[in-house]
Amino acid sequence: MRKRVLITVLLLFLAMTLSVVSFVLLQNRFSALGDALQNAVYADVPIERSCSEIEKQWDKSAVVTQIFLLHSDLTELRTALESLPELMDSPLLYRAACIRALHLLNGIRDSLAPTVENIL
């Protein structure tokens, strides 16, 4: 029984670690992507640079997010981000698309937080 309990405690530890690591990883990735989007919207960064930065951050986030998040939740965000290069010629549209992507990102981010609203 002792061996069984020991294995169980290790499994519990593994599950808890996975849960915490996934939360921290996602928050870090979303934070980096969010910063890139915010720079595109509010900071005076050239569109080409901001777009390549967003693309770079999304590429880094893609694997982590797909492992830990509902794929359907990500589809909308991915579509919004992938449309950005096509809108580079029109700064207004580009900015609007960035704001939309930022809202989607914040929505997913909020849904991950272990708050009472999310739990219930």
Binding site: V5, T8, L11, L12, F68, H71
Partner: peptide, 25 residues
Amino acid sequence: NTDIPLLNSIVVILVLTALEVLLSA
């Protein structure tokens, strides 16, 4: 539903198993 990450289910299964064994202990 393959949209749901497998890891979510794995973590839940591990926690449930752990709870069951710990409670029986």
